[in-house]
Design a protein around this nucleic acid. Structure first.
Lengths: 332, 332
DNA sequence: CTGAAAGCGCTAACAG
DNA sequence: CTGTTAGCGCTTTCAG
């Protein structure tokens, strides 16, 4: 049985409220009693029960971070950014992986709300816009990362995914590639993540008068295995393809494996561009060209946005868009 | 203002306790009222307030996971393992990075306890054994990963680090290396993590009659930059060294960079062995030999251990030791 | 400057 | 099978 505020109060010979005051550094208290209470707190090793406090204040100093998979370096870098500012501001974070499964996402969101988190940062899938809107309307501060949703009370921090795709196609076109494939994600709904990436890709092709064959675009899970399998199939069915643009670096890594396996030399026979610029792609051979995102900053901005929503509930959040640039390496 | 149990009770025309019963699926209730209450819950979209529940039950269904840096693939793989079983068992996890700073570690531990987590999994540094012991004695279930501490109420899940070092030295000795350096961590206290690794290394050297020069062992932070700098210095000062054993793969990657920079060919002029076997080391060129750990399993075991401590507070936990093996690649 | 009382939302006896 | 009464540990009126 841990020591409670009442224990401190009794030992110090003051009321429980007085203890509360010194703990929360609020109200005016004579320095004498303050010191006295402080001493007792130390002596008894009193620690406030945050559940109890949260129950009354409706603030827990916790936030939820909902991502696809912490094992993906992109997410872990972002998570680090979130964590760093959270820590600095006195927040603890609940971390949850969803593997991009809408159903898990839904459960996690509910669970976090049940735990009375002060806010949520999420990399959403489509299929849950309704729930997200509902949470937002219920005063649950929530910021979406890399996903656009039109809702007054939803925070938005995103990367310029469209521009990233354009940069990639510009580069490939300049290198003279005619048939360019793309490895896309499973959620192609317009308005979100993949939508903007795919749109940028298509617009880029159009800008250079390159063939926009729907079969050149493959949907795959966002990990290496997915990229490997998808690239294998794509290159086998369309040998004329000489360049592949992947929506994240893990996919590009998988495509690299596929090329090796098929005996295609990179970049001579097949050029490769990834997205995110995770550390790994700069270390492999050949190193991979990638659209760079400042991942830590993405996380930091998301957390800052969330904090401002928490502290100013009435002020509608201003969307933030972060730029990208292309890091050219050996794979192109 | 969210809907409460009282609201449901009134709307359903039953007592608040009855609602509590159906929510918690406890006690016998007539199917009729049960269905009725269920309907009202659905209608009102009632969700239980977990803070309130936790305040009375002393159980929050949350645990804390305290690691060095989620950005290190080793930790993110482990975290994934922890998360997977946590999710399956209905637990949410607080994630906290400490960058191996004892002071941050201390704060984080306190903070987690304040949030009334049901248990804690931590990759500890030395310097906090006292606090850990104190928490454990206060009935706070806690399991240490890759760290040995003799305390009846502390759970222990560890990798056989000593054996890992022995495997590494065996392999290097068999390859004919005479002068072997080691990149070690900053916490060399006997009994823990580094202690066992270093001991295995030294015992290995002794077993083969190889020189055990204290200056061959360098302390460095556990990231690539650290490994880079340490290897650079080590190789410059002791050109006779032809092999380096690093306590984690990130360090080994840094050492690889150092070799490239110095024009030393790997493995011909300098062999490299890492630890953890993160994905990255299999993808670089040359690929790195590494002591393999089943990282996900490590996390899963830790979570299982913690759960059993939570559910059987009186039963002292049985330490778990996981085996390692050597994955030989191009760097040796 | 300090205290008494009420209540956050829930579960736990103990009755009925 | 169901309801009443406390009380978890804390903060918040509102008095003193």
């Amino acid at each position: 049985m841990p020591v409670t505020m009442r224990d401190v109060a009794e030992r110090a010979g003051v009321s429980i409220k007085t203890v509360s005051r010194v703990v929360n550094e609020q109200g005016e208290i004579s320095e004498a009693t303050r010191q006295n209470v402080l001493a007792v707190i130390k002596e008894l090793r009193y620690r406030p029960n945050l559940l109890a406090r949260g129950l009354v204040t409706q603030r827990t100093n916790t936030i939820g971070l909902v991502i696809g998979d912490i094992t993906n370096p992109f997410f872990s870098e972002v998570a680090r950014g979130v964590q760093d500012v959270a820590r600095a501001e006195g927040y603890n974070i609940f971390l949850a992986n969803t593997d991009s499964l809408p159903d898990d996402e839904r459960k996690v969101l509910r669970s976090l709300a049940d735990h009375a988190v002060d806010g949520i940062i999420i990399f959403p899938n489509s299929d849950n816009e309704e729930l997200i809107g509902e949470l937002a309307s219920r005063e649950q501060p929530i910021v979406l990362v890399n996903y656009l949703l039109n809702h007054e009370h939803v925070g938005l921090v995103t990367t310029d995914l469209y521009a990233g795709s354009r940069l990639a196609v510009d580069h490939l076109a300049a290198k003279g590639h005619q048939h360019i494939g793309m490895l896309a994600g499973s959620n192609l709904v317009v308005g979100n993540n993949q939508g903007r990436r795919l749109r940028g890709f298509r617009d880029g092709l159009a800008a250079y008068g390159l063939p926009d064959n729907p079969d050149y675009v493959r949907i795959s899970p966002g990990n290496m295995e997915g990229g490997h399998a998808a690239a294998l199939a794509l290159l086998a069915q369309h040998p004329q393809i000489t360049a592949i643009y992947a929506y994240n670096d893990l996919l590009a890594m998988g495509a690299l494996q596929a090329c090796r396996q098929m005996g295609k030399r990179v970049p001579d026979e097949c050029a490769l561009i990834g997205f995110d610029d995770i550390l790994m792609v700069s270390l492999v051979n050949p190193s991979l060209t990638s659209v760079r995102i400042d991942k830590s900053n993405l996380g930091q901005q998301a957390m800052h946005q969330l904090l401002s929503m928490i502290r100013n509930p009435d002020q509608p959040p201003a969307p933030i868009v972060l730029g990208v640039d292309l890091v050219i390496r050996e794979s192109t």
